[in-house]
Structures are given as structure tokens and as C-alpha cells.
Design a protein around this nucleic acid. Sequence first.
DNA 1: TTGCCTAGTATACAATAAGTTACCTTAAAG
DNA 2: CTTTAAGGTAACTTATTGTATACTAGGCAA
Lengths: 99, 99
Amino acid sequence: MSKNICPLNATMNLIGTKWKPLVLFHLLDGPERSGILKSRIPEISNKMFTQTVRELEQDFLISRKVYPVVPPKVEYQLTEKGYSLEKILRDMDEWGRRL
Amino acid sequence: MSKNICPLNATMNLIGTKWKPLVLFHLLDGPERSGILKSRIPEISNKMFTQTVRELEQDFLISRKVYPVVPPKVEYQLTEKGYSLEKILRDMDEWGRRL
DNA sequence: TTGCCTAGTATACAATAAGTTACCTTAAAG
DNA sequence: CTTTAAGGTAACTTATTGTATACTAGGCAA
């Protein structure tokens, strides 16, 4: 009865939600402002967007830069750890293209 | 203003849940009986296991074979479509290994 | 100077998804 | 008789998501 400590579990804990891969994917081509990033994922709600980027930041997959201006300006970008998912994210996108 | 019809969305609709990638991953090495497959994912509840394999079956990622015996015997295996996710699944597992 | 605009986020509450527990099946073993 | 087996269902509780609304503070139009 080996307990399943399959590494995939760890991956799922970090990016195994409906929105995280999408947010990460849309940051692959460089930093984006919050609003623009959000607009690339039209179906996401405000709340889930904020919640998702917060969690990704906590897990060091993205970083958040706040400019102290009004109206607010916030930019997100992938960390190195986030970028290390590039191949997986692009493969998943490619896989979806063939459906 | 381009609405985001990113293929990754399609992928997420098929495997973008907490359990689906895990179920698929544990079928990569061949067909498994229901109980054994489930035991490889100890944290999954009975209900979520059944629900997950049902959805994967509907989406033609796995197939389900029922043997008319008592007690029941049911086997799951990846379809060709399911196998086409092999690289992604193994990469995700590998990524988790390095955390 | 009242009041609306902006972008990012926060909050309260409703809806949906996930987890828990109990129980069904039927044949053979004890 | 009673228990055990594997797989699954149904009823119910809790956790996660989604929706609608509002806040912030400087700039600007009326």
C-alpha cells in the first residue's frame, strides 16, 4: 500500500485550478497590466481574478508591481519559477488547438 | 477587443479540474481496475472519483469496461485521445518533482 | 463644488462544486 | 444466517466560485 506521493500532486496544488494556467499562459509573452491581463480571460470574474493572482504570487509563480498612481496601476509578470512552466502551458494550448 | 478564444480554454474545459489530470496520469501505464485506480489517489472521495471518471468517459479521454460479475469489476483505460496527453501529464509530474 | 471618471480590489451574499455518510447490489465463503 | 467483496448511488453538509455592489483618490466637466 505505498501511499501515493506522486509529484503530480504537488503540481496540481500549485496550478490545479480552473484559472491559474490561463493567467500564467497569458503572461508568457511578458508583463501585463492587471486590466489587460484580466481582459484576456473574459469569463473570469473580478473576484476570481484577484484571488488567482494573489495565490500565484504567494506561490512565487508571478510577481506583482504596484505603481502609486491614481487611478491605480498594477503589473504582473512571471517569475523564473513561473516561466519554468512555459513548455507545459504551451503544450496544453497546442493540445487544445487540435480538438 | 479580440475576444480571447485561446485554445488553452478548450484544454481547461476537458482536464481543468483538481482530479482529472491525476486520474489520467495513473492510467498512463495501462488499464486499471476501478478500486486500484482510486487507491492511487488516496485523497479523492468516492463521489469525486466516480464523477471524474464519468466526465472523462463522456469526453472520450478514457473508456470504461464493465464485467458482469459479482462483486462488480470495472476497468478504466485511456483512449487514444487520452494518451495524447501523455507528454503533458508526464511533464507536469516531472515539474512537481523539482519543487 | 458637486459629481462622475478611472483601475484595482474588497465585501456581502447567492450559487455551485466538493466532501461525508449511509446504504444498495448479488454470489460465495464462513 | 451473516459477512465480505467491488463499485456505485442518494441525501446531506461544507467549501469553493460567482455576482452585484461599493470603495479609493486625483483629474476634469458642468
